[in-house]
Structures are given as structure tokens and as C-alpha cells.
């Protein structure tokens, strides 16, 4: 049946994308939110939405990153977390840099997203723009300010 085939095809494609991207997306969202539950919810929901939308999404890779960050941002806003909780230790390797995550949690949303995507996901300014919806101008500003603030918070050991 054509309708069934059409319904299955996007899910297969999205599953391949999930296998390629989901771990990195989850870790980026975890660094962004300092909350494993928020990261998990954002990853699951963004891929669920991608499956539902199927071929209506032109660039699924950019879409899941963008929607993941927006879902996480919205959830953080909903929780009114002006100061984010410390990382959930159950997900953290003993060697994980909790100092870095704690410093990240003190950056504004835009700066935190730009810094995480640049330093962890190796994304260019253009790619960060696509993945967050910020203009390239805003990405540059957020990246510059976020980098400076992060260095200050980490004791300026990375100058």
C-alpha cells in the first residue's frame, strides 16, 4: 500500500539520522541544560516530531538540532530556572568536567547554545545559525560574549 510505504519511509530515514546524531545531540543538550531529564525529553520529542513530519522537513539533521535546543530552552524557561541545577551525577562519568558544566549553566541561553555548539559540536557560525535559528550576527555576538564569560568563570585559564 502506498500510504503505508509513505508512512514507513521517513521513520527509516529518521532512525538512521538518530543513530548518527542522537548521542551528540543529547550531550550537547545536557551541557546546555545541565539536566539529563531535559536533554532526554528534548531529544525524544524532537525525533518524534521529525518522524511525524516525515518528508515535510527539508533538512532533518538541522531540524532535530534546532527543535531539540528549542524544546530544551522552552522547558528551562517553563521551569523558571534562572540558576540551573548541578548536573545529574547518575549520567556523569567521574572524570566529567562538572566545573565546565556549572560555568556553562551561568551563561544566558543564547551564549550557552552558541558555545556548546561551537566547542562541542564543532559547528561553524553558519551551522550554529541553522541549528538555533539565531542570525549569524547574533551567533557571532553570543559566541564572543559567551567565550569571554566562560573564561572568566573558569578562572581565565584558557586565554
Amino acid at each position: 500500500m502506498e500510504s503505508m510505504a509513505a508512512a514507513v519511509r521517513p521513520a527509516v530515514t529518521i532512525e538512521a539520522l538518530y543513530r548518527e546524531e542522537a548521542d551528540r545531540l543529547w550531550r550537547a543538550l545536557y551541557a546546555f541544560s545541565s539536566d539529563a531529564e531535559v536533554a532526554s525529553d528534548a531529544v525524544a520529542e524532537s525525533f518524534a516530531q521529525a518522524i511525524r513530519r516525515g518528508t515535510a522537513i527539508r533538512d532533518p539533521r538541522a531540524w532535530v538540532w534546532k527543535s531539540g535546543f528549542r524544546i530544551a530552552s522552552g522547558e528551562l524557561k517553563r521551569r523558571s530556572q534562572s540558576v540551573y541545577a548541578l548536573p545529574d551525577r547518575s549520567y556523569v562519568d567521574p572524570e566529567t568536567d562538572t566545573e565546565l558544566l556549572t560555568a556553562l549553566a551561568k551563561l544566558p541561553d543564547g551564549q550557552r547554545a552558541a558555545v556548546v555548539l561551537h566547542y562541542y559540536a564543532d559547528a561553524s557560525v553558519r551551522e550554529i545559525s541553522r541549528r538555533t535559528g539565531m542570525s549569524q550576527l547574533a551567533v557571532r555576538a553570543n559566541l564572543s560574549r559567551g567565550r569571554k564569560r566562560l573564561k572568566l568563570l573558569l578562572g581565565d585559564r584558557h586565554g
Binding site: A11, E15, Y18, A22, D23, W26, R27, A28, Y30, A31, A36, S40, V43, A44, E45, F47, A48, Q49, I51, R52, Y91, V92, D93, E95, T96, D97, L100, V116, Y119, Y120, H158
Partner: peptide, 22 residues
Amino acid sequence: GRFRRLDRIDAPDLWREAVGRA
């Protein structure tokens, strides 16, 4: 280098959860 250490964190497999939600 500090961000690279994030790779040591085990990410949960959420594919079934995503499919279930969809």
C-alpha cells in the same frame, strides 16, 4: 579539550521513546 570530555557521558537510547511518542 574540556568540551571533548563530554563524550565520556553515556547518552541514553531514546529511539523507542521517540517512536512511541510519534
